[in-house]
Amino acid sequence: MLAGFTVTSLAATEPLQVNEKITARIVKEGSPEDPSVIMELTFAPGAAFGADEHRLPEILVVTSGVFGDGTAEYGEGSVIIATPGSVHFPQSEGGCTVLAFHPAGR
């Protein structure tokens, strides 16, 4: 392994229940030196999160299925960037998986 690199696996990460139909796998937790957080979110069909207001930036990459934000739907390969103060309503009618990047922490 090259110095300064860390490698992990989603398969080695325990899923956490966000709610009845959404699970999260924390790939990288923030630290005082580097507050960024990376997680995989899996939405079962019909999953909904409710209002999600962002104090900090968030970047979502849809890796499978279709992700909805309350007004539009985004398919695989979509990149959604939320700025501080923005609000969306994460949901998925048919189920989806997204990678969530929180560059400034959560």
Score class of each variant (00 low, 15 high):
P57K: 01
A51E: 11
L60E: 12
G65L: 10
F101R: 01
P15K: 04
H88N: 10
C96H: 13
V61L: 12
L60S: 14
A72R: 13
E40S: 02
A51F: 05
T42Q: 12
D34C: 13
C96Q: 15
Q17A: 09
G85K: 01
L60G: 11
E76H: 08
H54G: 03
V61H: 10
T23V: 08
V79A: 07
T23I: 06
A82Q: 10
V18A: 07
F43A: 06
V66G: 05
V61T: 08
H88I: 04
V62Y: 06
E40M: 15
R25E: 09
S64V: 04
Y74K: 02
T83Y: 14
F5P: 00
F49D: 06
G68F: 14
A48C: 06
P103W: 04
V7Q: 06
P57S: 01
E93D: 09
A104E: 12
G46T: 01
R106D: 15
P15N: 00
P103E: 11
F43N: 01
E33V: 04
F67W: 07
E20F: 10
L10Q: 12
F89V: 01
F101S: 11
G65K: 12
G68T: 08
H102G: 10
G95C: 05
C96K: 09
L41R: 11
A12G: 01
H54C: 06
A11F: 11
C96M: 14
L60D: 12
P84R: 00
Y74G: 00
F89M: 05
Y74S: 07
A47L: 03
E76V: 01
A44P: 03
G4W: 14
T8Q: 04
G65Q: 11
K28T: 00
V18F: 15
M1C: 02
G68H: 10
F101T: 03
V66I: 07
F5D: 12
E14H: 06
I22A: 04
A11L: 01
S86D: 08
G46A: 01
V87E: 06
I80E: 08
D34A: 13
L41Q: 02
S31I: 13
T63C: 12
P32Y: 07
R106H: 13
S86Q: 15
A72K: 14
Q91G: 05
N19T: 01
P90T: 08
R25S: 08
V7R: 14
V18Y: 09
